[in-house]
Simulated scan of single mutants.
Amino acid sequence: MPGRDIASPQACRDLCTQEPRCAAFTYVRAGLHGPQARCYLKTLSPVAKVDTCCVSGVKALATMSALEQNTDRPGADYRRFDVATEDARLCRDACAKENQCAAYTLVRANVHGPSAYCTLKSSASAPQSNNPSCVSGFKQEWPMSPLETDTDRPGLDLSGQDSASPEACRAACSRDAGCKAFTFVKPGVHGPSGRCYFKTAIPQARPGSNCCASGVKW
């Protein structure tokens, strides 16, 4: 992905965290690629090379299940893309990088068209085995605290997205490696829909906030 001017290695890391396609980053110090420091986001994780020019890092991916051979997980598709080979790891790695993704299925070539393709899913349906056309998998969830009703945990936002309920927000946080805590804001407060905010760390709880429900990752 193209480089951009940036103030610090930490700001470059945060850009990578917020970009679903980013797997790693390199921050190049000022004066090397121009007068300003530059941040380069990577779609894959290159082999590290020690160099005083730069600071780099790799995004921690969500924990994924083993590949489910000859298995479909139908429904809940939100994105589809062709792949050049029938390598389900391409689907798995794409799912791991996207907060919305809960499961995936690789459909082999010459089933619904000449190319193999991946479907990324917003929820994980029951697996349907004995299907040689497909390989599937799902995001494994981290254990979460009980839902903290009428509680806000302000600050340290990683990202915000529309969400249907506190339970959906909690489940989404549990699947995201970067999410350490969350706050769900009720409809009508930050817009017509409910909003789910992932947190990079665990902010102080503020009970008695009837706007919100929160929780933390154990």
Results as ranks from 00 to 15, higher is better:
Y78C: 08
R79T: 14
R79F: 13
R80L: 05
R80G: 08
R80K: 12
F81L: 15
D82Q: 08
D82F: 03
D82L: 05
V83T: 13
V83E: 01
A84P: 02
A84W: 11
A84E: 10
T85H: 09
T85S: 14
T85E: 11
E86S: 02
E86I: 01
E86W: 06
E86Y: 00
A88Y: 06
A88L: 10
R89T: 09
R89Y: 03
R89V: 04
R89Q: 06
L90Q: 13
L90R: 08
L90P: 08
L90K: 11
C91P: 00
C91E: 00
C91H: 04
C91M: 04
R92C: 05
R92P: 03
R92W: 03
R92Q: 10
D93S: 14
D93L: 10
D93P: 00
A94S: 12
A94P: 10
C95H: 09
C95G: 01
C95F: 03
A96H: 02
A96W: 02
A96Q: 02
A96Y: 04
K97D: 01
K97C: 05
K97M: 13
N99I: 07
Q100D: 12
C101S: 02
C101W: 01
C101R: 06
C101V: 06
C101T: 03
A102R: 10
A102E: 11
A102V: 02
A102W: 06
A103S: 15
A103I: 06
A103E: 11
A103K: 14
Y104K: 01
Y104N: 07
T105L: 01
L106P: 00
L106D: 02
V107M: 02
V107K: 03
R108G: 10
R108H: 07
A109Y: 00
A109C: 09
A109P: 02
N110S: 11
N110A: 09
V111I: 14
V111R: 15
V111K: 09
V111T: 15
H112E: 14
H112R: 15
G113M: 08
G113N: 13
G113H: 08
G113Q: 03
P114Q: 10
P114R: 10
P114W: 12
P114H: 09
S115K: 14
A116T: 06
A116V: 12
A116N: 01
Y117E: 13
Y117R: 13
C118Q: 11
C118K: 12
C118F: 04
C118T: 12
C118R: 10
T119D: 12
T119C: 07
L120K: 04
L120I: 07
L120N: 00
L120Q: 03
K121P: 05
S122F: 10
S122I: 13
S122Y: 07
S122G: 15
S123I: 01
A124S: 15
A124M: 09
A124T: 10
A124G: 05
S125E: 02
S125N: 05
